[in-house]
Design a protein around this nucleic acid. Structure first.
Lengths: 153, 153
DNA sequence: CTTTTTGACTTTCTTTGACTTTCGAAGTAA
DNA sequence: TTACTTCGAAAGTCAAAGAAAGTCAAAAAG
């Protein structure tokens, strides 16, 4: 569902990454191509291609500048181990969502499972009188990771 | 027979759902179309298109936001409806486990999903200083049921 | 009373633009 | 040649404006 220009740009970049582990973009050219202001590219990059979702952004300013976008590969058990670390502290719903999305991207869980998890760590599910949602959220994600680890060599 | 504007809007939405399992609405456009305030749409949605009547609502705020309305088919919807009732009160881990087992038996979820859910509603995941685990547990199960409802054909 | 209608206020996400920083190349002086 | 300066072409930042949807409770209708 490409609802906004940001979504369209996201898709475009995402599919450029289908065949390559990294790509080099020109911010201005991309912006021109999509008839938007250059900083919109930054917005897409910052909201969609985050480190939490396994992307690394490098760039250079000035003449012949560029933006290099790399998709990180990581073996599954390593990934799960790192994810566990993320769950050491209380987590916001946003953080948890990104983690779940990441698991989906890595095919550690199915789309259905991702949706289940997302709704479980939502504010609606966890909302409680005292403000410890974030703690519970990371507890839950920790258990999920432990459970998933059983299926990984 | 259409006493109120709410009834008219209800009918309109209902007939949009005749051909599709889900529709996407724009709250503002609908409100404009029916010359009412936007929050009237929420009122109609909240009073008529409830989970108990077999509807699921998802939405997104912000620029190019939307409201997605899904109708679930009633094969399994009775079971889910009853399950929802179970989640009206706080639940022990044992009760939740039984509910999950039931879902598995009915093939509404896979074994893997059942295991995930079980670890999520375990004391380990939910344990928190104050004793409201059971409330959170039923909240979670309620959201899970709502999520599963989207997949029911 | 209960249900519906209304609107002020809030939250979330996106779009835009003015301003800043960085880099490389080209030009200039010693 | 070497070192310094200038200029323009990138990319970055940040906050304001815009565009949705959500909430809640008061007022109105039935």
């Amino acid at each position: 569902m490409n609802r906004s220009i940001s979504d369209v740009i996201e898709q475009f970049i995402m599919s450029s990454l289908d065949d390559n582990d990294f790509i080099e973009l020109s911010r201005n050219d991309l912006a021109k191509f999509f008839s938007c202001v250059p900083s919109q590219i930054n917005y897409v990059l910052n909201t969609r291609f985050t480190i939490n979702r396994g992307f690394v952004i490098e760039s250079q300013r000035g003449g012949s500048g560029y933006i290099k976008l790399t998709r990180m590969h990581d073996n599954d058990s390593n990934f799960l181990k790192n994810s566990l670390d993320c769950c050491a502290k209380p987590m916001t719903a946003l953080e948890a969502n990104q983690l779940i999305q990441n698991m989906l991207d890595k095919k550690l869980i199915s789309e259905r499972e991702a949706n289940l998890l997302k709704c479980i760590i939502s504010a609606k599910a966890l909302n409680n009188p005292i403000n410890i949602d974030n703690t519970i959220r990371s507890n839950i994600m920790r258990q999920v990771i432990i459970e998933l680890s059983k299926n990984v060599k």
